[in-house]
Amino acid sequence: MATLGELERAVMDAVWDAPAPLSAYDVQEQLEAGGRSLAATTLLTVLSRLEKKGFVASDRSVRPYRYTAVAARADHVAELMHEVLGESRDRSAVLARFVGSVSEEDAAVLRELLRSAGSGG
């Protein structure tokens, strides 16, 4: 069974893909088309969680409430990648990156290792 996180992602994908604001029932239909059937009350819970996290906004002037994405998917990806790439590694305590941009001298050192390993073996 899908975790709550996976469910949130599926709902978010539906909201992002939709050209107009969606109600919980619209989301239910979308997911149904994708082969997942979920109760509308479950989806309302997920949508309100997403609203609390700041991913969707609701229009409460109509019934049922309509939900729209606060930012495009690409904007969120950009925000994420900014945090990953934006700072030099040891300025970010949030995450540990495998390697940042390697300087030309450092790259030369590594290529030398590969050359000698290649000729030796």
């Binding site: 990953v84 790439l85 934006g86 700072e87 390697v99 940042g100 941009s101 390697v102 450092d106």
Partner: peptide, 9 residues
């Protein structure tokens, strides 16, 4: 690291 990925090491 040598692929033009941003963020100095």
């Amino acid at each position: 690291g040598a692929s033009g990925v941003p963020g100095a090491e």
